[in-house]
């Protein structure tokens, strides 16, 4: 009896330690969001007053109102949505085909090609900025959303192909063989049989592509030049003035900008882990 009690005590202590550690990690992760929320609910003076007000003395939605009045955030949101959706669709279409090819076909240099694609991720993106600018200028695509979709697709594609290949590897080859016996062409097998089964992988990759395009700043900043084409991250950056920053408005805009990715994540999170880890233990 005492031995059992002792074991139970150790288990409770262990669980308490685990939960305490989780609480610390959660605090660390969630505190910036809390700080954003609280600052967005302050007026401009209390947003930077000392000592810091950990909860606003007089909460106000002034910043949420003034942000819409001061800048065309509706347009920025729409642009971000178009760019992120465009990047996602193009990337998924190409990555699914490429991933399927790498998974199902053996051809000379396949491993080297795949490694080379993933290797491009090691190059810091900023080094490619001027080259992209030149390409976009030559193609007369400067200050267009198409330029951003093309640029982001090139960032997303290698990793997306890698994820998709990993996921296709987990789908039994017998499915393809059965479809072939039933008279499907390779493309029909991909489209009608394999792709529907790969839905979790596609969802995870889509989320990755969407978030990358939604959050990216530097390329959007350099490759666009007008309020009509700015994305949300560029629009928010313009709140940083030379001598002053509208912190409450900045945080309000940040909170609103975080909503679409959060909603998207809520709907797709159950596919995310399975999609990303598929093939990891092969």
């Amino acid at each position: 009896m005492p031995r059992r009690r002792g074991r139970r005590g150790r288990r409770v202590a262990w669980l308490a330690l685990v939960y305490a550690l989780l609480a610390v990690v959660n605090l660390f992760v969630l505190f910036p969001f809390y700080s954003m929320l609280v600052t967005s609910l302050k007026d401009s003076a209390s947003a930077i007053s000392l000592p810091i007000q950990w909860w606003p003395r007089a909460p106000t939605v002034e910043a949420y109102v003034s942000m819409w009045a001061g800048r065309p955030y509706g347009r920025y949101f729409l642009n971000s949505l178009l760019v992120a959706s465009g990047t996602t669709v193009v990337s998924i279409a190409l990555a699914a085909l490429a991933g399927y090819g790498f998974s199902r076909y053996r051809f000379p240099g396949a491993t080297g090609l795949l490694m080379g694609m993933v290797g491009t991720q090691m190059v810091p993106g900023i080094l490619l900025l001027i080259t992209y600018f030149k390409v976009v200028s030559v193609l007369e695509l400067y200050n267009t959303l198409t330029a951003l979709v093309l640029a982001y697709t090139s960032f997303v594609l290698p990793f997306a192909t890698w994820i998709m290949k990993g996921y296709f590897d987990t789908i039994p080859l017998e499915l393809d063989e059965a479809a072939t016996i039933d008279g499907c062409s390779p493309l029909a097998t991909f489209w009608r049989v394999t792709l529907p089964v790969a839905f979790p992988g596609i969802t995870a990759t889509s989320l990755y592509a969407f978030l990358l395009a939604w959050n990216e700043f530097m390329f959007a900043y350099v490759l666009t030049d007008s309020n009509e084409k700015y994305t949300i991250s560029v629009g928010i950056a313009h709140l940083f003035g030379e001598y002053s920053v509208a912190w409450n408005e900045l945080m309000a805009a940040g909170m609103v900008a975080a909503i679409p990715p959060i909603v998207l994540y809520m709907f797709t999170s159950r596919f995310l882990v399975s999609g990303l880890t598929a093939g990891a233990l092969k």
Binding site: I130, K134, Y221, V222
Partner: peptide
């Protein structure tokens, strides 16, 4: 950075 990129391009 924006001016530099524009000039180089």
């Amino acid at each position: 950075p924006k001016f530099t990129a524009a000039m180089e391009a």
